[in-house]
Simulated scan of single mutants.
Amino acid sequence: MKNIVVLTGAGISAESGLKTFRDSDGLWEGYNIEDVATPEAWQRNPKLVQQFYNERRKSVLEAEPNEGHTALARLQRNYNVQIITQNIDDLHERAGSKNVLHLHGIITRAQSDVDPDLTYPINGWELVTSDVCEYGKPLRPHVVWFGEAVPNMQRAVSCCARADIFAVIGTSLQVYPAAGLTQYVRTEALKYIVDVRIPYTGNIPFRKIEQPATIGVSLMIEELLAGL
């Protein structure tokens, strides 16, 4: 069974009503990134940061996986599927995907302020400032903030190097280090990119499907199953 590695970004979650990255005005749901998504912001105003991620978590729990998510889950019937996502929601898992690697963390978990490897599931949508880890230290959202290392990056590189088929869905390939994963995919691997507006992708020979994920993923799967 062939290995297919899928890199997903904000576009696929946006079709479920979620905004998972900054808008063109530099704001994320009306907040300055520097005020809510950096280690410095957490040190400066943890209450604001918790409030921001509580709001995002509530939105995630209210959202539902869309056809793009469920189509990728169905792909597991025919391929060994590894999803690498830049998104912090759990929509891939709720759609039924079994192998999901979160590059930027997942908002439905909390992590210790002193040990990022110490994580806990969050019951409901709200994390409060009095919630602490087993060391008695505050719990923060289990997300990778701007200025922090991406701990799952090496695992993602290894996955990409094993891909027989590589698909990019709902991402502009502008956010690093995730965008750099394309360089680890073997030259002979079949490559797809699915997005509403496909940016210039250099010399990489992508098969381009310029459609939203809710349409484009199914079109890609039809091609794959037809043996193209």
Rank of each mutant, 00 (worst) to 15 (best):
A156S: 12
N203I: 09
Q43E: 15
E55G: 10
R74I: 09
Y79K: 06
N80A: 11
D131C: 02
D113V: 08
S158W: 13
K58Y: 07
G105M: 04
L118P: 05
T201V: 15
V168Q: 09
V143I: 15
E134C: 12
R207V: 12
D115I: 08
V132G: 05
G180S: 02
T119V: 15
G9A: 08
T70P: 10
N3M: 08
Q86K: 11
T108R: 11
P39I: 10
R207P: 00
V81K: 03
V49Y: 03
V157T: 06
M153H: 15
N32D: 14
F206Q: 10
P121R: 10
W42H: 01
A179P: 01
S112N: 05
E148C: 10
N80L: 04
E223V: 09
E62C: 00
Q211N: 09
T119H: 02
W28H: 12
A163R: 05
M1K: 13
Q154A: 12
C133A: 02
V5R: 08
A95E: 01
D131P: 05
G17Y: 04
Y31R: 07
I193H: 07
V175C: 04
E148V: 04
I198P: 03
D115A: 10
V36A: 05
G30I: 02
A156I: 07
G17C: 06
A95V: 05
P199Y: 01
L48H: 02
I209E: 05
V196R: 13
I193C: 12
S112V: 08
W125S: 15
C133E: 10
Y184M: 01
L127I: 03
E55H: 11
E134Q: 14
N32H: 14
A63F: 03
L101V: 13
C159H: 14
W42G: 06
A110M: 06
P138S: 03
C160W: 05
P65Q: 08
H104P: 11
Q50C: 13
N152E: 14
S97E: 08
T187R: 13
P151K: 07
L173W: 00
A73P: 08
I204V: 15
A213M: 09
V143G: 11
L72H: 00
Y184I: 01
A178N: 04
R207C: 00
L219Q: 14
F146Q: 00
N45T: 07
R155D: 13
S24Y: 13
